[in-house]
């Protein structure tokens, strides 16, 4: 019995000491982590709708999205966080659509599962900029449509490119849903 206690005691002591150390560290780091995540999110949202001064998260029948507000609190547009499947895994894209129904800009938030140097190029701003002012009926969803609509897919990474354009299409679908709901409900906000 004494042998077992002698063996277990050091393990318990080490576990208690290091748990306490981690607990204290987390107590001090947690606010910084939350702040970093919030700032990253806000920065990304500002990328897709530049004029907005504030963003508020909304969840309703159309799912989760952000309302972009101007300084007086009026709605400028909506930002959708769309998740599609690329070549290696999830691709997360932010699509900003103004009230007039044009996509102002898009921003690929996360494409870490795409091949570096190939599919990962969807995170380049220069490539994403071609989709600003895109109209919902001319979203390329295949290699052929990329060519015929005059857009440029990333060479050798059509699947990753289409993952981005798919999320634009999804965003427009949800935008239509929100707009039609607002009209039905007589804008009771």
């Amino acid at each position: 019995m004494k042998y077992y206690l002698k063996t277990i005691f050091p393990l318990v002591a080490i576990a208690v000491f290091f748990s306490a150390m981690l607990g204290v560290s987390y107590y001090f780091l947690e606010p910084i982590i939350t702040e970093t995540q919030r700032r990253e999110e806000q920065d990304a949202l500002r990328m897709v709708l530049k004029e907005a001064s504030e963003f508020s998260a909304v969840t309703n029948d159309a799912g989760f999205y952000y309302e972009a507000l101007d300084s007086e609190g009026g709605i400028l547009g909506y930002i959708f966080r769309e998740v599609t499947i690329g070549y290696g895994g999830e691709v997360v894209t932010l699509v900003g659509i103004t009230l007039e129904g044009t996509a102002e800009a898009i921003f690929v938030l996360n494409a870490d599962k795409e091949t570096p140097g190939l599919g990962y190029k969807i995170t380049e701003r220069a490539w994403q900029n071609q989709f600003s002012e895109i109209s919902p009926d001319r979203i390329p969803l295949s290699k052929a449509q990329f060519d015929s609509y005059g857009f440029e897919a990333i060479t050798g990474a059509t699947i990753s490119s289409v993952a981005v354009t798919k999320s634009i299409a999804q965003a427009f679908d949800r935008f239509d849903l929100i707009v039609s709901e607002d009209n039905d409900g007589g804008n009771d906000e």
Binding site: S25, Y26, L29, I32, I33, T36, Q37, E40
Partner: peptide
């Protein structure tokens, strides 16, 4: 934790 806080 440090990486999450300072280098996401």
């Amino acid at each position: 934790l440090f990486l999450q806080a300072f280098a996401p």
